[in-house]
Design a protein around this nucleic acid. Sequence first.
DNA 1: GATCGAAATGTTATGATATAACATGACAAT
DNA 2: ATTGTCATGTTATATCATAACATTTCGATC
Lengths: 166, 166
Amino acid sequence: MKQRTKRRAFPREGHDHADCVASALDAAETRCADRGARLTPLRRRVLEIVWRGHAPVRAYEVLDRLREDGAGAAAPPTVYRALDFLMEHGLVHRIESLNAFIGCDHPDEAHSGQFLICRDCGLVAELDDAEISGVLARKARALGFVDERATVELRGLCPECRGGRG
Amino acid sequence: MKQRTKRRAFPREGHDHADCVASALDAAETRCADRGARLTPLRRRVLEIVWRGHAPVRAYEVLDRLREDGAGAAAPPTVYRALDFLMEHGLVHRIESLNAFIGCDHPDEAHSGQFLICRDCGLVAELDDAEISGVLARKARALGFVDERATVELRGLCPECRGGRG
DNA sequence: GATCGAAATGTTATGATATAACATGACAAT
DNA sequence: ATTGTCATGTTATATCATAACATTTCGATC
């Protein structure tokens, strides 16, 4: 595996985003090959669109980009089906509090993720913290509840947008 | 303050729900009086509708109930404005993963809550656990992120729906 | 390389959720 | 009674998502 710059929670503004995208698409190809899933051109293209940046992308934004591609007149179901596929394989996550989607660059393990959403710049960082999921499962279990999927989304200010303050 | 049965995370099926509602409305009146906020008949009625049970209620369900009341032809903004008011004062919470709303019976302290949502029966229990919010704020802070509001929603099976299993 | 079944995509329509923008009404303070 | 503020009414539309059915693609098998 090619060595890349270590991931950071919030990427710097000037980072090599083409590298992020390439890395994510590579990981997706590998993941799908391993699982016998078909990463078709359409699905790959949708994943690429979602990877436009590190801010969530809405379904109708994806739709607009597809239409700009010109090839065929895409409709909402096209987009939602592709997103469903990508979510099923851990390649994108849905941000419930924004009705939007964000790419995941480490689809290898099953996970639902925890998200830090900057209210100022809109960037999102993903965490996959065992201590967080552990305490959630434990607290739930103490009440007799079996946790199957945790939605954890924190809204606040990222390091850049805090500036020196905070 | 009248002594009531201790709250449980997931209320039993046969519990005295009228008591839940009365208690919540009382708490709301007090809360609003303390803060100089006006719990108008409309807002009170919306709160009561949301308190129909311990499962989340969608905005358009509220709208339908209001229309059944007959008094005037309610429209979506009526409902969303009332819900906004109630959320602002901690009287209801929004469940992001369901696009629905649930009553809160302890509006006294500022809190965003953590929710256990049963995928089988649809009931929701609210937690306000300092250890959970603590670990979230701490983990976020370690990455330079300042958490302002946490959305925590666990999907799974409640004690009743697990049966003896689990 | 024909055929067949399953999966993917196309297409049309509609359902579900939410807000903008402006008009009117209720109410408290003076 | 007048005025300013907050609440509600009203109309229209934006935004998010899926149902239902048609067609195409593609691999597997013969």
